[in-house]
Design a protein around this nucleic acid. Structure first.
Lengths: 179, 179
DNA sequence: TTCGTCATGTAACCGGTTACATGATTAT
DNA sequence: ATAATCATGTAACCGGTTACATGACGAA
């Protein structure tokens, strides 16, 4: 149920095509809710049937036509109602943590490599968040509409920092062992 | 594919029935990989077909019989191979963060309530992690087999602390506005 | 007597992933 | 030539959730 709402959230920003949405889900909102293009096209169809979005075809020559979607008043209402429902608690679902539970039955060298790779990935993600913040929210007080996005970025940074700390600690603990 | 491995991880700890596993997934390993009982029974069947587990029925009177599963050598081998494959990166998937992206189109009072509820939930989870650490890993150096579990708990604590910080910060930012 | 626990499972559904499919344009 | 980008979608599959189903025991 939440993917349709995530799409509505994107479309309040500006009208977008399925293709645009798929790219958007690879960058901004996708940091907190991932979606692939088959999901998006499927969901747009349902949203249209419910009357939460309307589509408008932009004729293009050479390229395929763009079908641009726009939130309706009913869609805006649905968004408001969704925002009042209690949120599902965030759940960790992590392969690496599962492996740790069986530390004596797995390949420890591989584990160290994987933690090292994770550390690099989290550092990169943190750098990306910093970059986005610097180019989009450089000046003092953000506009009210941007506040939420800035807060999202900050959560992302908090999250990545937590992982970075943990990875460094974990490697320090695992390195000394001669295995 | 990872649920079957998570089950194997549990069964390296000790032989368990489907029911036991379902409870186990509600507490220890479930902090990092959730599973419901229909999933578990389904997966145990597949694991049996692959020869990664063997089952043994404990006859009980009054209660239904327990079907206890045990990892085979092939299962242990599968676990080792799984541990060498690169890990899927941890993905955030969070309703609350999605709502933040549309902060001007949602019910802000509800948002504050939800962040307050989150803060409480994360504090509770942190307390639970502390409790588990204190009763299970109170003494100085943990046994090698427990090291991974302790590290898992520490990641959990890092994670919850990050959220707690963020929630406090977010409330401070949202409270002052008269709505 | 009603609820919770022990213990097994199935069925239907929904959501997410991967692969398939098309076809023109532009850059290397 | 080859690959990437623009732009739409479908089909098959797999994984996860919810509800259904049974039935005995013990505690409030």
């Amino acid at each position: 149920m939440a993917l349709s709402d995530a799409i509505l959230v994107c479309l309040t920003e500006r009208p977008m095509s399925g293709y645009d949405l798929a790219k958007y889900f690879d960058t901004s909102i996708g940091f907190f809710w991932h979606a692939t293009h088959p999901q998006i096209y499927r969901e747009l169809k349902k949203l249209g049937q419910r009357g939460h979005v309307v589509s408008d075809e932009e004729i293009q020559s050479g390229k395929p036509n763009r079908i641009v979607y726009c939130v309706t008043d009913a869609g805006r209402q649905a968004l408001l109602e969704w925002s009042r429902k209690p949120v599902a608690p965030a759940v960790i679902k992590d392969d690496l943590l599962v492996r740790l539970q069986a530390i004596e039955h797995i390949d420890k060298r591989a584990l160290r490599q994987q933690i090292t790779a994770r550390l690099a990935a989290h550092r990169e993600q943190l750098a990306q968040y910093h970059h986005i913040r610097d180019v989009r929210f450089s000046d003092g007080e953000p506009e009210p509409g941007d506040l939420g996005k800035l807060m999202g970025l900050e959560l992302g940074m908090e999250y990545e920092n937590g992982w970075i700390n943990w990875c460094k600690n974990a490697l320090a603990r695992l390195e000394p062992a001669g295995d």
